[in-house]
Design a protein around this nucleic acid. Structure first.
Length: 155
DNA sequence: GCCAACGTTGGC
DNA sequence: GCCAACGTTGGC
């Protein structure tokens, strides 16, 4: 099956790409996603080996900072069952989990980030979900053309 | 810290 | 099933 491309947002203050670098096996479980569209992408479309841009949101400046790879297919997010967690969801049950997430592994950190301003400046990236007005989706698909363009800029 | 855009919840 | 109220995201 063809590899798909994605973009995943994280606020560096809660989890940065440096945190991922320092994590055991440079791998992390992408828990805490509580948006159905984002969940559906992880749960139903992401496959092991898919690659994702790691995007720092709410950062100075915001931008793409690296690439991660899907290391494990989606499974139920345990934080939804944990009453101590801020991600606890009373409407979720073990029999009927609501929230799923994948594991990702660090692939590379770019020497310099590609900032949101830069991304906006390229006509080649027109139509990219990230750049659409009002787009807040934290997990989003990236077209192969856009993926190739960005990785070429950063190579 | 502000606030626009968006998603979710719950009363009716 | 509508929609107002509320909460969240995320750039600025």
């Amino acid at each position: 099956m063809a590899t798909n491309y994605w973009l995943m947002k994280s606020e560096p203050e809660s989890f940065s790409i440096e945190d991922l670098k320092a994590a055991p096996h440079q791998t992390t479980f992408w828990d805490g996603v509580r948006n159905y569209q984002a969940r559906n992408f992880m749960w139903q479309e992401m496959r092991v080996g898919d690659r994702c841009f790691f995007y720092h949101s709410n950062a100075k400046p915001p931008g793409i900072v690296g690439i991660v790879k899907v290391a494990k297919q989606a499974y139920p997010d345990p934080t939804q069952f944990d009453t101590q967690s801020k991600y606890y969801d009373a409407k979720a049950s073990l029999e009927k989990p609501r929230w799923y997430a994948v594991e990702v592994k660090l692939e590379r950190i770019f020497k310099q980030l590609l900032s949101l301003d830069q991304l906006k400046s390229y006509p080649e990236l027109e139509g990219m979900t990230l750049l659409k007005k009002g787009s807040r989706l934290s997990i989003q698909p990236v077209s192969k053309a856009h993926w190739d363009f960005v990785t070429k800029k950063l190579s």
